[in-house]
């Protein structure tokens, strides 16, 4: 994975975290219902893991950075999301060998599965580190995963476009460098 791609995807994940955090803060308190925000950083890691571009190490590095940011924004113990996102990235990369994620419904379904897994993993890790917290947070996992899954198709679409731009840019850069060498 090129440093540019890694940086851009980290930036997208960071912006996603800010966006969700701000939207949650701006949610009207007088509204009777409150829904959890989607985990956009998780979707970025998932996209990177499922895409056939970039090496495993690159995905893990971006997952590590996004996990670190997620920990900062979530207020969770540092390293919790880092660990989970790295595992997610590796699992997604493993799944990408057998999965061809295309179409909004299938994308959402895959995202739902991984989001559920991440939710359970986060709650599990948290409870294993701090047993007093209990497993009650598992009740929020389905709805949060559903929200994440709903945002997966549009975000994947945007990330694919971003990937194409990066590819076009690198090809143009490569051609220019080749012409320079020839000259």
């Amino acid at each position: 994975m090129s440093p540019t791609r890694a940086f851009l995807f980290c930036a997208v994940g960071w912006f996603g975290l800010i966006l969700v955090s701000s939207a949650q803060a701006a949610w009207p308190i007088d509204w009777p219902w409150h829904i959890p925000g989607p985990d956009l950083a998780l979707l970025v890691v998932l996209y990177l893991g499922l895409s056939d571009r970039g090496g495993l190490v690159g995905v893990a590095v971006v997952a590590l950075l996004l996990g670190w940011l997620a920990d900062l924004f979530a207020g969770s113990p540092k390293g919790l999301y880092m660990t989970v996102y790295i595992l997610l990235g590796l699992a997604a990369r493993g799944a990408s060998v057998r999965l061809m994620v295309r179409g909004a419904f299938f994308t959402a379904a895959v995202a739902l599965f991984f989001a559920l897994a991440v939710g359970v993993l986060v709650v599990g890790l948290r409870t294993s580190l701090q047993p007093t917290l209990g497993w009650g947070a598992l009740r929020q996992v389905p709805l949060a995963s559903l929200m994440t899954a709903l945002f997966a198709p549009p975000l994947f679409f945007l990330l694919r476009r971003l990937d194409k731009r990066i590819q076009q840019g690198s090809r143009a850069h490569g051609r220019a460098a080749g012409q320079d060498r020839l000259a």
């Binding site: 190490v57 893990a60 590095v61 590590l64 996990g67 670190w68 920990d71 113990p77 540092k78 390293g79 919790l80 880092m82 660990t83 790295i86 890790l125 580190l129 701090q130």
Partner: peptide
Amino acid sequence: ALLAVPALVLRAGT
């Protein structure tokens, strides 16, 4: 190493 880093960070962070 990348898996060890978050584990160590998590341990310290906890």
